[in-house]
Every structure is written in C-alpha cells, then in structure tokens.
Amino acid sequence: MKRNKKMIIAFITPALVTFLVMFVYPVIRTVIMSFFKVESLTASTSEWQFAGLDNYIGIWKTPIFRTSMINMGVIWLVGGVIVLSVSLLLAVILTSGVRFKSFFRAAIYLPNVISAVALAIMWIQYVFSKKYGMLTSFFRALGLDNLAKISWLDSDMKFWAMLIAFCFGAVGYYMLIFLSGIEQIPQDLFEAATIDGANKMGQFAHITLPLLKGVFKTNLTFWSINTMMFFVWSKMFSPVETEASTISPVVYMYNIVFGTKGVTQRDAGRGAAIGVTMALFVLIIFFIFNRVLKDDDLEY
C-alpha cells in the first residue's frame, strides 16, 4: 500500500498535539510539582519552593495517609477476592446453559449503569439504616435480634458496609469480561473432556481457568486501577467530614489539594506527591502481573 507521509503527519499531528498538551504536560508538571512546596494547584511556578523529597517523606509520616493506604490495600485484597470470585462464578454459571441468560446478565450488570452516588444512597438509606434498613427488618423478621441490632454504619462496621456496597456495584463489570473470555473458548474442548469423563469441576479447573489467564490479568489490572481511584464511595459514606474509617488516598489527596468545609489550608505539592505515588503503585502492580501471568500460554 502506498503511504502518503504528508497525510499521515496531517492526521496524526492534531491527536499528537492534544496528547502532549492534555496528557504528557500535566503528568510532567505533576511530577515536578511533587518536589516543590506549592499551595494552589495552578499557582505560578514563580511561587513554587523547592522541597526535595519532603512531600514524599511528609505523606508517609502522616498517620491519616497511612490509614488511607491500608484502607485501599484491604479494599484491593478483600474486595478483589470477593468481586473476582463472585464475578467468575456468575460468569461460569451464565455460560453453563442456564435459562434466561440474557436477563441475568443484564440484571447483574445493571448496578454499573446506575450512578455510584445513587447506589451509595440506596445502600446507606435503605439497606444499612439502623431504623428501617432492609438488613435490620430482615433479621428482625427472622427473630434474629442480635443480628438486627448490628449498626452497619457505626465506626467499627462502616468500612465493611462500604466495601460490601462497592463490591455489589462492581461484580457485573468483571463478570461481563469473564463471560466474554469463557465464550471465546471453543466448545469442542469441553465436549472432548466430557467424552473423556471429566466432570464440570474438572473442566473448570483444567480448561476454563488456564485459558482465562489473560482475562484474569485484564480484570486484575482494572480492579487495581479502580481501587487506586476509590473516591465516590468514600465520599458518600462520609459526606460532610472525612472519616478515617472510609478515607482513601484519592480522597485524602482531594482534601489537601482543594481543602474541605471549614479547612482552607491547601498543599498541592503533597497532593502531587500522592498522585505520583499512586501512579507508581499502578505501574508496579501492572509490572508484577505481567511477570506472573505471562501471555505466552495458549488462550482464545
């Protein structure tokens, strides 16, 4: 095919310029800003004061930032195990010839279509409410008074209540990815295994799972990025004042960059350091997954 270099340049230039201005420039500016003491995000560079690694050291010395990182770690690990297991289970069930597959697929995916804000309000007001929440009413109806008395939104349980609600909203998305991965596997492999006497569990363990390695990597990467960017659910569960039990690194970053109600001190330099730290975490996780789950195996 004949290539017209001028045309290639003409078509690429706008996208390239946009990419450089909208993406590369902010990234470079953020990285540089993270080494400076800067109050406002858009302050002129003449107001920046070089601080070396102070911002990075400062955030790790701050207990509330460490708490936010621990919260994020628990969301990633516990939430990840729950969401990816449940979504894989649902995907396997839906591809096993169950009736009304389309309906269930749509129903399970539905929470992803609804705004996270609306979902969070639903969970807080109608599920976890101490007075008339679904869980309280359900356990009371069963005569399980001790369970009915659980305060799902008190200081000890709030994080777990938030995690349950978040996982509920996330399952459908990962299930769809697993579903498409399973549907790519040729049916004759399962038929041959059935003829050879393999049961459903055996087929799942020795055919489905190994051939979903690439899909797993995709889902794990998406899950990691989602948990690093955990923001709306935290804000909804602590709407006016940020609480340590629900704080995430991104919420902490937002608070110190823009201030909160009644708090007007800002520190965009530290905010940038948190942003760079989170980006490094994503890169490290991506690198580890690439090493552990290699793409060189057979997959469909």
Binding site: I64, A244, I247
Partner: peptide, 15 residues
C-alpha cells in the same frame, strides 16, 4: 479544623 489530619482522627474517636 485547624489541623486537617488531626481533625480526621478526632472525628473517628468522637464517633
């Protein structure tokens, strides 16, 4: 609100 980091700790313990 004077110390935003401490404020979050006070909030949690007040709960």
């Amino acid at each position: 609100n004077t110390d935003a980091d401490l404020k979050t700790v006070i909030q949690d313990n007040l709960m």
